[in-house]
Simulated scan of single mutants.
Amino acid sequence: MRTAIMTDTNSGITTEEGKSLGIFVIPMPIIIDDKVYYEGINITEKEFYEALTGGKNLSTSQPSPGEVMDMWDSILESGDYDQVVYIPMSSGLSNSCSAAMGLALEYEDKVFVADNHRISVTMRESVLSAKELADEGKSGAEIKKALEDDAYNSSIYISVNTLEFLKKGGRITPAAAMIGTMLNIKPILTIQGEKLDSFAKARSMKKCQDKMLEALKSEIAGRFSHNDISRLKVGAAGAGLSEEEIENWLGMVKEAFPNAKVFYGPLSASIACHTGPGAVGIGISF
C-alpha cells in the first residue's frame, strides 16, 4: 500500500521541509489587514513578526475546503499513492479537523483524517511517526488507528511574554491583561490533548521555563510512568526568539532531559498570532 502523509504548518513542518521529508504540507492562512497570506509561501517569518508587532490587524483561519481537497486530488491523481493520511491540528483547538473529516467522506478508502489531538512539536513527532509507518507499507486505516491510539501520550506547556495577544484573541479580559502587565505576570498554559487551559503564573520567563520543566518531570514520573522512557521525545519551541534565546532554552531542556531526544521547533505563524513574540513552549511525546 502506497500511503501519502499530509499535515499543516501548525506541525512546525514548513512546506519546504516537507518536500525533503516526503511529507505533503498545506500552509495555514494568516490574514493581515484583510489580505490573506500563506505561511512559508508568500510571507517570510521576518515579515510576519513585523506585521504582528507593527500594529496591523492579524487573524488566523483554516485552509479552505477547496485547498484541502485540491491537495488530496493532486496526490491521488499523481499515480504515486493509493491513499492519503491527513494529520491536521487537534480538533480541540480548531474546526479544521472536523471539517476535513466531513470532506473525507467523499474519498471512501482513499483519504483518512487522523484526529491526533496534537499541535506544534508533539504534532511534528506524530507526522514523522506516520511517515515511518507509511514507509513500512502500512495502510491509511492502520496509520490513522496508530496515531489516534497514541494521541494522549503527549503533553504541552507554553508561556507568553506579553498578554497583549491573548487579550486580542479574547482569551483574557482587558482588565486582567492590564493588571497582569502592571504586575509583570506571565501565564503558563497547557494542552493535554484538547483545549488550551491555564496552568500557573510566574513573574519572569525564566521562572516560567523552570515551572514548565518541573511540570513535565512530574508528569513523566506520574501519568506517563508506564511509558517506555527510552522513547521520550522533547520538543522546545518559541515564537520569534533570537538565536541566543533559542540556544539558552534548548540548553535548559537538554539539561533537564539528558537521555531524551531533544529538538527545537519554532511556533507556526498561526500559533504565534495568539501567543505573541517571545513565547516559549515545550512538549513531550513517546
Rank of each mutant, 00 (worst) to 15 (best):
F257R: 03
S59P: 02
N248D: 11
K144I: 09
A202F: 08
D34C: 00
P277D: 08
Q192N: 10
E125V: 11
K217I: 00
A215S: 04
I5W: 07
L93D: 06
A151S: 10
F112E: 10
S64T: 15
L216W: 11
A175M: 13
A146Y: 15
R223P: 07
A146W: 10
Y157K: 11
G283M: 07
N248V: 02
A104M: 15
D8A: 11
G169K: 11
F224C: 12
T7C: 05
I23H: 10
K186A: 05
T7R: 06
P266G: 01
D82H: 04
G180S: 10
F286T: 11
A4K: 04
S204N: 06
E67Y: 13
A200D: 15
I229E: 00
M123A: 09
T173P: 02
D150F: 03
K56P: 12
Q209W: 04
M212F: 08
D210Y: 00
K19Y: 04
I75R: 12
I13K: 01
K35M: 14
E142N: 01
A272G: 05
G22Q: 14
A176F: 14
V113A: 06
A146V: 06
C273V: 14
N95K: 11
L128V: 13
I188N: 06
K138I: 10
L241V: 14
I23N: 00
G265K: 04
S129Q: 10
E108M: 12
Y37P: 11
G238E: 15
P27I: 03
L58A: 13
A215P: 02
N10G: 14
A100T: 09
F263Y: 09
S11H: 02
S11A: 15
A114W: 02
I156W: 05
K110A: 01
Q192C: 08
G66M: 12
S78W: 03
T3I: 00
K144R: 10
K195G: 00
S64D: 07
D70Y: 06
L163T: 06
M6S: 06
E243T: 07
I191H: 03
I185M: 03
P27L: 05
Y38G: 08
Y81F: 14
S64R: 13
G137A: 11
F112C: 05
V68P: 10
G251S: 09
G265A: 09
L93E: 08
S94Y: 03
E50K: 15
A141G: 03
E16A: 05
E77V: 01
R118A: 12
E16L: 01
S230Q: 08
T275V: 10
N161D: 12
L105C: 14
S242I: 08
A151L: 07
